[in-house]
Design a protein around this nucleic acid. Structure first.
Lengths: 214, 214
DNA sequence: TAGATTGTTAATCGATTAACAATC
DNA sequence: TAGATTGTTAATCGATTAACAATC
């Protein structure tokens, strides 16, 4: 994983997709694949695959292609699936619970270590072995436990203040589900999920296709 | 909205973001804004804003800038927030319920008209005035109601078959939450949401910054 | 009017694709 | 070995940024 030059975010965002396709190939007991065939499956060019992978190293072999398991593991390493990130969920509403129950994150290196909410009706309940704690106890919790990432599934208006609090408590990464672009005067890394943006793009495409503008 | 040339998907995907920022400006009672100032707020270039907007028409005025409300409405029209898309949710687990309860979609032109599940424990319950129906009754429902978009919040393995069924029933758009790239031999428009991809990118960035590779 | 800012063309930059020598 | 396919350089394409005349 040399750092000769900065790897573009476009490449990074494709890595999880490669990871998914390689995972599928593994499940199909396919042990080797050429960039050409993988490209066909993924609907991209073989050139792009080879360029992308060579940002991180030469994982293939001339005349042979790529060993699926090896490549899967290498991309996993690049993405840090063996990093064991400790995460907490702030906001145990439907979205928070959905994410808490989603088993895939664990497989990808994200361990859920705490869930917080302000609603006394919810505090104390268990989700996946984890008892929901009151948000008031979060300072204490973070003091006593390593927490890398806070997942924010809280109401829109609460988000900026809670995010700032997380940053001040030393959290390194925020995964934000409120429809806003979080920006903080701390060097915390933020990844925003914009669900309604995605839905609106779908709406746009439908209108384009069916000219159903109201 | 002339169609002189195809508008790139990169531009389209920025539109909801413009829409959000303009909505914020409206709430702040700001009535006009220059591309320069909006650019500063959004952390992009003024050039990009003017280029993007001029794909759809000249909404500004030399020497003045853009009228916030007018621009907001125009982008809304482009995105079809007044199209009144009828949507159904398939899968009333936590994710399905989270989306059902999320008020923002309605504001953006997406009306929820049905929720379906296969779990008899859940069928019959109400979410937001809508009684959860059994998935078996979906053919009937779609026959009797216009449904534009199906939101798929169902288990991974169930997704391809359900998606195909939706396409065969004439649904025009699918919003898929399973971590796979849905592809169907129908001309249905699909928008995939890849939550774990987003989380993995966050993980990558954290590793880059803190060199904490396990 | 003078100043500001757009709409739009031209220049630049970066990302994608093509090509091919290296090599398994 | 011959065939296949990579890694990598070069060419192309598209997207972003800069510049500026038009004009409010």
């Amino acid at each position: 994983m040399d750092l000769k030059r900065k790897i573009s975010i476009a490449v990074i965002r494709r890595l999880p997709r490669y990871y998914r396709y390689l995972s599928d190939l593994l499940k199909l007991d396919i042990t080797r694949i050429s960039s050409k065939e993988l490209a066909a499956r993924m609907d991209i060019t073989a050139s792009q695959i080879r360029q992308d992978l060579n940002c991180f190293g030469g994982f293939g072999q001339q005349g042979y292609g790529y060993n699926v398991e090896l490549l899967f593991n290498e991309i996993g390493k690049i993405l840090g699936v063996d990093s064991g990130f400790n995460t907490i969920i702030i906001g145990a509403g439907n979205m928070g619970q959905a994410l808490a129950n989603y088993g895939n994150f664990e497989k990808r290196g994200f361990r859920l270590v705490g869930i917080f909410d302000v609603n006394p009706q919810i505090v104390g309940k268990r989700i996946k072995d984890i008892q929901i704690m009151h948000f008031d106890s979060i300072d204490e919790f973070i003091k006593n436990n390593r927490v890398d990432i806070a997942i924010l599934t809280i109401p829109y208006n609460a988000t900026p203040a809670v995010a700032e609090k997380m940053a001040r408590l030393g959290i390194k990464g925020l995964w934000n589900f409120s429809p806003m672009d979080l920006k903080l005067p701390y060097d915390v890394i933020i990844e925003n999920v914009h669900l309604s943006d995605s839905l609106m793009v779908l709406g746009y495409k439908l209108n384009q296709k069916y000219r159903r503008q109201a």
